[in-house]
Amino acid sequence: MSTITGQAAGPSAARAVQKKPNIVSRIIKHRADYLYVLPALIVMLVVIAFPIYYTIELSFFRTPPNLQMKDKIWTGLSNYSLVLNSSVFHEVTIQTIIWTLASTVFSFLLGLGAALSLHREFVGRGVLRALLLIPYVISAVAASYVWKWLYHSDFGVIGAISVALGFTDEPINFLDNRQTVLASLIVVNIWKEFSFAMVMLMAGLQTVPDQLHRAAMVDGANTWDRFWHVTFPHLKGVSMVTILLLMVANFNSFIIPFVMTGGGPADASHIWITHIYQLAFGRQQWGAASAYAVILFVVMMTLGYFYVKALTRGDETRQGA
């Protein structure tokens, strides 16, 4: 007979081991792990935690234009009420919403159309994709100057084309007109970022199993049915992330309005970000600008919550050592 040391033990045989270890001992046990994240953590702390704290602090004080902190005066919530009650704030808020939603919706739709059209294999597809992506890669400053030149009131090519085609009698001054300025800037923004949506959705399309399409074809589904019942459900996750990222990017965009119009004419192309910048660095109203920033911050946190949720889905199920 061979060595039999372990016979079937009852289910309660070894339940005398310790309960879940407490947090301190777990931290101590994992202390080596922290070394890996430490450099990143320090950088992030210095450049993130401190500014956040600082912005919140500033928002409760009136601080002199030269930012001499020792001269600041506690004013409670008055910066907040100042910002929230100003008519410019309301106007800029509406513009921010229009800017963010219009840019996001149109970029997404153009990107979706492009992704679907590019999904089929054809000669030159790679070249086409690369060309469409270039605006996304170049700097927003470059894009702003190029479009500023295109929109130029006297020598702009867009104005000249619309006259040549008989749309208008004389060139429109796109950027110096309260009615057209925001829409003109949104076009530039879409030009710059629709290909981001395109790339994301193209990657998403690749996850749609071919078999499903064939099955749907056998079941008699036409092109639209296949898109709606097969492709689209598979794109939901990617679409969510894409739309969120676009919204965040648009909400935060600064360069295009700042470089092209500086928020003008008469604040008509200001969005929150450019407005805050102007309050702070243009008029040195640090307190109001900070309060403004905190409000923006809260809005972003809400978006951020959904962003991280969308991004980390499925991550926790993964096992590690």
């Binding site: 992030m44 210095v46 450049v47 993130i48 401190f50 500014p51 956040i52 600082y54 912005t55 500033l58 930012l67 902190m69 965040v248 909400f251 935060n252 600064f254 970000i273 805050i276 910048y277 702070a280 660095f281 640090w286 600008a289 900070s290 920033a293 923006l296 911050f297 972003m300 946190m301 978006l303 951020g304 962003y307 991280v308 991004l311 980390t312």
Partner: peptide, 18 residues
Amino acid sequence: LVRNMFPAVVFLMPLFLL
């Protein structure tokens, strides 16, 4: 991750001071 969410402007003033 959340750092991605914040506009540059929020950090501009304090970072400038820093």
